[in-house]
Amino acid sequence: MSESTARSAALVLAALAVACGKPVDPSGKEDATFTKASMAGAPAPSGEDRPLSAELAVEPVSMLVTFNRLKTADKLQEALNKKPGQFSHIDLDKDTNPDPLTVADRATKDGHAFEIRVRPATGEFVVATMLFDPEWSYLGHYDGVMGGAASTTARPLPVAPQPGAPPVAPPVVATPPAVVPSAAPTQVAAPVAPAPGAPAIAEAPAPAPGVAGAVQAAPAAGAQPVTPTKP
């Protein structure tokens, strides 16, 4: 950004800081959760309860939208992640690397709104909601959801699902197939050798072919016995 552009941005933001009041809550009072656009450079809060937006360069991000004409969520998100750590130092998963940022449009009747989010490995959380007037001049931001609670480093606000959005199904974990142990092969028992000195057991001779055991066939009824002739 050139010096003349930066000077113009400072003048615009300073004018907005004087002319623009805070949004009001339902009771008609100024919304205390809204931070008005300012170039005063107030010191960033510290401690675990500090807003998550304290780790985000909100004013430079607003200049990207107003002066670089990054007026869509996709274009702004691409610019914020081009150089990690340039606009944000948020590191919720404590891996020493700045977490990537995401941007979503938010409906507002008074102009435009971008919800800046952070996406560490543990999920997606709201950082801030930035408001712009109909001509894309920056008005200020909420330290969390628009008109809602603040998101702090100790208690970051998770991104709520949009109305009508289909529920996210839990991941399906594949169950490994059960392993059925195969049947052990049948082993034939080896013949047992006789003990030394034991008497040998003779095996019974096999019967002769055509003879049923040791029984001789009887002659038929009425038949005369055959006398063997002498030679």
Rank of each mutant, 00 (worst) to 15 (best):
A214C: 04
A165I: 00
G144D: 01
S88C: 02
S8A: 14
L92R: 02
R50N: 06
V172F: 10
A183V: 08
A189T: 08
G144N: 04
A107F: 14
A206W: 08
V118F: 02
P194K: 01
G85E: 04
T35Q: 10
N81Q: 06
A200I: 09
M63W: 10
T96W: 04
K109V: 10
A208C: 11
Y142V: 02
E124S: 15
T152Q: 07
D31T: 05
A6T: 11
G21R: 10
P45D: 13
P219T: 03
T96N: 10
A149H: 14
V179F: 12
E48P: 08
L101C: 08
K230A: 15
R106K: 15
Q86K: 13
R7D: 14
L76S: 03
E30G: 15
L56Q: 01
L64H: 00
S53C: 11
A174M: 09
P100S: 02
A150M: 15
F125C: 05
P167W: 05
A193L: 12
P185V: 09
P51N: 09
S2K: 15
P167D: 13
T66L: 07
S53P: 04
P196D: 01
T186E: 14
A79D: 11
D133H: 00
S4M: 15
A214K: 01
F132C: 02
G123D: 00
V215C: 00
T153M: 08
A190Y: 08
A195T: 06
K36S: 15
A178P: 06
S2I: 04
K29L: 06
T175P: 04
G140E: 01
D49P: 06
S137M: 15
A183I: 07
P156N: 02
C20M: 11
A208M: 06
